[in-house]
Structures are given as structure tokens and as C-alpha cells.
Design a protein around this nucleic acid. Structure first.
Lengths: 202, 202
DNA sequence: GTCTATATTTTGATAGAC
DNA sequence: GTCTATCAAAATATAGAC
């Protein structure tokens, strides 16, 4: 488990810093967070921390990247369970309010300025939309999903709901069940249009 | 149009300040925005502005409240067109990226700290959820909406999608059509479950 | 109502000793 | 790898003149 060699200590400290930095960024958001405070929480001075991460921005990006698990699950075939993995990820998030706060505030910040977060989130949304699109369109071919919906629209809606629910959940954790609501949406979207509705489309 | 009396000038300046403050907060977010810069844009010094709004927080809240139109439309019966009004509001927002940025970043910030924005958004979400709930449940009674969905769930999903789409739209305005997607969601949610699906529920 | 001037605080970052 | 010391640059807010 323990890494050996001349860098063992540095790496361990790096991990510790990332851990407390996540908590601090999550609690305060990027702007209000200070490198000094993260350092203090990690048992260092500000200058000591900046030996490991040479700027606030670098520290912040490292935190983001470490927690970006991308719903990976190498055991399952890609493209066929993305929706399920999204729901599972949302389920896990319900036990990590700090992480959710971080992503909410950072995604919001990413649209404000062309800062470090922007590229990260643009890339992330593109990737996620692609995964969900592949899943939905695969299900449509097999007849397990409403054939009249555009897979791109479905992907956008799923992502939007996941994001929007996080906000509601953070404001009122007791009364918002994120993964249940995501399933409600998914089940409703699956529905094949009734004959009457299909007729209306002509 | 012009107000008379001893306060006319003060009020006019107040309006002007609020206008440029909205733009500035929208562009920079609460933290990165500075009272100095708002003052400069309004043709004042910082101290001059603080005569009208005695703190940054007070200025910020005034901006939020002024732009919170609450989808009001006194002509229509309450409770029966909330969904339509939500869609219309989203449609209007597509022409005001600054306003959308403001609400996105402020709602994100509201969950970070118990600052001034928190109460505002909690109250706002509660109100909106109530409106949508009333609308959906009214439609269900008249047979115009899937009877098996919980109106509270539907309200949460609509709000979540509206919020989440704003984020995606800000990152990629060309390729995200907020109001169209909201309609896609609404049409899909309306669908009555097919007999086969109803059978599955037993 | 608006200004100038200033007090106070906080922050990110660097230099250099150990 | 971590520290002390320090710089330079913001920001909010206040005091008091006009």
C-alpha cells in the first residue's frame, strides 16, 4: 500500500492536502476558499502547501480531477448501462454533500469566467452526453424505449435533471430524493406514445 | 414618469445602480464582483454608491429582488397555467444570458453559506413548487395528465430541468434549446401509461 | 448626495533559511 | 519539504468635508 522511494512522503502529504482541500472548497466555494486555510487544515503553512501545488488554481483543478470518477465501471459493456450508472452515481452523491456542493458551485462558476473550471465542465458534459446518447439509442433499437424521442434530447434532460436535483437537494436534503426522482423521470420517458398520441402527430 | 419630491434624484440613481449592478454581478458572480466597479459603471465612487446601498450584500439582494418577477400574470387564473408560464419564462431567459448567469451562480452560492441568497432561494423554490403542483394536480383531475405520477415529483422534475438546462445553455448556447426541451419533457410526462405498463405495476 | 482619504483585513505569491 | 518573513494587490467599510 505505502509507496516507496524518495517521493513517498510527498505523495502522502499531497493526498492529505487534496482531502482537506475538497472539504474546504466544498464548504466555501472557490472564491471564498483560501489556500491559507487549506494549509492550516492540512497542518502546514501557506508556503508549505504551495510547494506541492504551486497555485490556488492548480490545487483546485487537482481536487476536481481526483473526484471525477466518470462513472467508470470496466466490468460492464460501455454504452449499454450509462443511465444506470448515472443513477448509481447520483445515489452515491447523496452521501457526500460536500462533493455535490463542490460540483454545483464549480459548474456555476465555470460559466462565469473562462477560468480553469470551464474547459473541465465543457469536456465533461460532452462526454456524458455521448455516453447517455449511445445508451438510449441502443435501447431504442431493441424496442425498450420510446421510439419518438431524440436520444440527444433525452441525454440533455437526464443531465439537466441530475444537476437541478442536486441544487434542490442541497437546499432541502430531507425532502428531495434525487435518485428516486431520476428513476421517475426515466420510467416516464421510456413510455411508448399511446395510439391516440401517435395519431395526434399526423 | 418622473417621480417628484425630494427623493426623485435618489430614486433615479438607485435604478441606474441596480441596472449596472445586475450586469456586473451577472458577468462576474457575487464574489468576483466589486462594489467599486459597479460604482464606476454607474458614474460614482464607491463611497457614493454606498450611500444608496450600505453594503455589498444589500446591493446584491436588491438586484435579486428586482428581477424576481415570479412569472406573474394577473390576467390568467392562478394554478392552471403555471407550467406554461414557466416555459415562457425560460423562453424569455434565452435572451438574457446575464440574468441567467446571475441566477445560476447565486443559487449555487446560496447552498454554500447561510448568506442572504439562501432564504431567497428556499422561499422561491417553495413557491414555485406549490404553483406547479397545483397546476399538475388540476390537470390530473380533468384527465389531461398521467394519473400515476405524483404532482410533487413532477414539480420537482420541472424545476430541476429548468435549472439544469440553464447551466448547459450557458456553456453551449448554440446547441441547447431550453424551452423546446422543457416542452419535450412536459409532453413525455403527460403520457398515460400503456395497458402493458399498468399491468407491470401489479 | 457625492467626494476624498483612510483604516482594516485578507489574499496569493515569492525569497531565502534550514 | 517546510518554515519565516514579506510583498503587492485587492477589497469592504467608515469618517468627515463640501
Amino acid at each position: 500500500m505505502a509507496a516507496r522511494g524518495p517521493y513517498a512522503k510527498g505523495l502522502a502529504k499531497r493526498e492529505e492536502i487534496l482531502e482537506v482541500a475538497l472539504a474546504h472548497f466544498a464548504e466555501r466555494g472557490y472564491d471564498r476558499a483560501s489556500v491559507r486555510e487549506v494549509a492550516r487544515l492540512a497542518g502546514l503553512t501557506q508556503a508549505g502547501l504551495l510547494h506541492h501545488f504551486s497555485s490556488k488554481e492548480e490545487l483546485f483543478l487537482a481536487v476536481l480531477q481526483q473526484r471525477d470518477d466518470r462513472l467508470e465501471n470496466p466490468d460492464e459493456p460501455r454504452h449499454t448501462h450509462s443511465v444506470g450508472r448515472l443513477i448509481e452515481a447520483v445515489e452515491r452523491n447523496a452521501y457526500e454533500p460536500g462533493l455535490v456542493r463542490l460540483f454545483v458551485s464549480m459548474s456555476a462558476e465555470s460559466v462565469e469566467s473562462d477560468g480553469p473550471a470551464r474547459a473541465f465542465f465543457e469536456e465533461r458534459y460532452g462526454w456524458l452526453r455521448g455516453e447517455l446518447h449511445a445508451d438510449v439509442s441502443h435501447r431504442q433499437k431493441n424496442g425498450g424505449f420510446a421510439p419518438d424521442l431524440d436520444p440527444n434530447d433525452v441525454a440533455s434532460l437526464l443531465i439537466a435533471v441530475a444537476d437541478g436535483l442536486q441544487l434542490q437537494w442541497l437546499l432541502d436534503p430531507e425532502n428531495v430524493d434525487m435518485s428516486r426522482l431520476l428513476r421517475v423521470l426515466w420510467d416516464a420517458l421510456k413510455r411508448v406514445p399511446s395510439p391516440a398520441e401517435s395519431a395526434e402527430l399526423r
